[in-house]
Design a protein around this nucleic acid. Structure first.
Lengths: 151, 151
DNA sequence: TATTTTTCCTATCAAATTAGTCTGATTTTA
DNA sequence: TAAAATCAGACTAATTTGATAGGAAAAATA
């Protein structure tokens, strides 16, 4: 599983929206883009994908923008990764159930491993919510400020 | 981590050579290619990479070919995957030690996850040898024949 | 109602990656 | 010396990636 710029941008955008979840104000794309160093027009496309998948919703017109449709603790990292990057299986065949095998014995001898890999990755990314990542970022921020003040 | 055709071909070629390890005869590319449905000229390129990395060696001229430089139980799946597909980390930054962080707090909040993912994948592919995969393929072959005879 | 601000939609594009092909040189053995 | 094999490098077509461009549509506000 590789995380492309597109995926990286999507994750950062959602994390940014997560920090604004529950507020009156919706967040315009230009703000998400500026604050996270994401090309605005590229982010527009990504937000449409996220909206299509029901992760975010939007308000058009003046003082419009985006907002999360679900609370950050109800959005799994794995959801977004799969949505933007596609399957996490190293080869497509590894999505099939274990018994269902192709006509290629060599491929099948490896398949068991790829199934394991996919399961291990899923086990991680499907057990992390954006609330977890928010928490992690707040800790990093504290640590960073702590360091700055020490100078 | 995605396995491309190139990687898939490399793994199959090595597995095929593994079944011929310790024999007098070296195996010509054309045989590896034919037996595994791999384009011959493409496989030539791949074998050069494997040779450059010291996985296989070759004998030129008539009745030449390739052979494993190490016993199958000394070749890790992870070695070949990394050689052909590159890093297993979902993002390059996740190769850095945990403390070393970029200037981007959001990226760092995610990084911890990518480090975990890479570790989980490594834990699988660096603990499987080609001897293990040979064993697995032999079992699949038996099961396949058993099924055929039952008809 | 006109203007502005925003999302929404579609087309286009350049660079990189993937999956090869093609041509031919070099080496070795029979 | 002819044949069989590896070795080397250029080339190519298709796909993916990472955008950019232009404008339509909607909504708030003056």
């Amino acid at each position: 599983m590789k995380i492309t710029f597109k995926g990286d941008y999507a994750l950062k955008a959602i994390l940014y929206l997560a920090f604004h979840y529950g507020q009156e104000r919706v967040v315009p794309i230009v703000e998400i883009a500026d604050e996270n160093d994401i090309p605005r027009k590229f982010l527009e496309q990504i937000m449409q994908i996220l909206k299509g998948a029901g992760i975010v919703d939007s308000k058009r017109g003046i003082s419009g923008g985006f907002f999360l449709k679900r609370a950050p603790d109800k959005i799994l990292l794995g959801e977004i990764v799969r949505l933007i990057e596609g399957d996490i299986e190293p080869i497509p065949c590894a999505k099939n159930p274990p018994q269902v095998c192709c006509d290629d014995l060599a491929a099948c001898a490896f398949k068991e491993i790829w199934v394991k890999v996919a399961a291990a990755v899923s086990d991680i990314i499907d057990n992390v919510t954006f609330a977890d990542i928010m928490e992690r970022q707040l800790k990093l921020k504290e640590a960073d400020q702590g360091y700055t003040y020490q100078i």
